[in-house]
Each structure stands twice: as structure tokens, then as C-alpha cells.
Amino acid sequence: MKALVLLPAFNEAARIGRVLGGIRAAAPEATVLVVDDGSADDTAGVARAAGARVVRLPFNLGAGVAAQTGYKFAVREGYDCVVHLDSDGQHEPADIPALLAVIARREADVAIGSRFLGGGADYRAGALRRTGMGVFGLLAWLLTGVRFSDVTSGFRAFGSDVVRFVATEWYPTDYADADVLITLRRAGFRLKEVPVRMYPRAGGRSMHAGLRPIYYVFKMLLSVALAPLRREAFERKGS
């Protein structure tokens, strides 16, 4: 199976090296692609030095756009599976094979790394964040009938049909969590959660800083509410 490990990165030069080292140790046969989302620091240089392939966006376009650039890359180069993880060290690279295995064995089209399933209980989040996760998890459950334990996880693997599907126009530009899962479920893809480890950020700037959480909640409520009504939710996979 031709697997691609995708890391969108924005100003992560200080942290990405260690993550790339972890990926190389955990999944040596996979190609690693870093999508540099218009960083001002040497993220691209560090990534290249660590042996990753690098695509540089000309200016900062947001995490969703950076990820979608990677999906477009994967479609063009014919990858069977794309594992997406954060470049700041929050996701444990050693868990990549577990996600890949779900796709390789065709158990599901989407493997979602869950920090709350099984052994991943050592992740601590604030009360506000916990409430938000609970609300969106509940909404996702109501809209899809699937009980997700970790609906805001960005650590996930897509099979090639899903990659083709998200490389089309509709993929969200900024935050892509619950709404994407709902759309994928509605489009007929099979989703499966896999226990993974996640850590708090090791520094740098979170994309959930300042007033962003308020916009996040607004955006997510709107797109979760509209996800089942949008056109792509009715398109079948592979179309």
C-alpha cells in the first residue's frame, strides 16, 4: 500500500523536526509530505532536511486549505492512503501504523484517532473545551447515528476514495472536524475510531488562541447544521 503521511505546518520549525523523526521511526516506508502554510520561519527547510517532501503555499491560507493541498497532492501521485497529523507534536507518530492498518485491511474508509478510546485516557482538557467536544459529539451522533468518542480529532487516515472526495471543492478552509465527519458519513463512507495518544502542545501558537474558539463554535455549529443539507452529502463515494 502506498501511504502518505501529511503534516500541514505553520511556523513549526522548532517542533516539526522531532515529529518527523518520530514518523520515520514509526512508518519508515511511508512518504512524508509537509505542507508549509506560508510560514515566516524555516519550517520548509527543516522539513526538507529531515527527508520530507515539501509543498509551500505562497501565503497563509488556513489549516483546512493546507490539508486539502496535501490531499490534492495525494490524488495526483496516486496514494492509497493519507494519514493526517499535526506538526506540533500533539499526535504520537507511533500510532500511525494503527491508523494505516484500518485502511489497509479495508475495515473502514476513514480511521479517526481518538484520544478518549481505550488507552488514551491521559489527555487532559479544560472544562470549556470538554463541553465543546461534548456538544459537537452529541450533534454528530444525532446527525449520523454514530457515537464518536473524539469528534475534534485531527489525527486521521483516509482511504483513496475519501482522499479523492475531500480534494474536491467543498472541503472547509479553516477548521475541519465534526462537519467533515458528518459529511463523510452522509456520503456513505465507513468511519472507525482507533485509540491514539495525544499530548498538550509543546509551545508555539495554537490555532485555538484568543477569540478563535468563539468563531470556531459559530463556524462549526453552522456547518454541522448545514452539512446534512449540502449537495456533497448526497454524492456517493468515488463519484
Binding site: V35, R56, P58, E169
Partner: peptide, 20 residues
């Protein structure tokens, strides 16, 4: 905005291919 996004992605993918 969506057209600019697609152009930027296209540019990034093409220049990466050229550099490699």
C-alpha cells in the same frame, strides 16, 4: 476567495514538482 485558494494550491503543487 475560493478561486484564489485553488490557484495558490495549484501554484504550490506545481512549484514543488519543479523544485524536486
Amino acid at each position: 476567495a475560493s478561486q484564489v485558494k485553488n490557484l495558490a494550491q495549484e501554484l504550490a503543487l506545481l512549484s514543488a514538482r519543479l523544485e524536486e
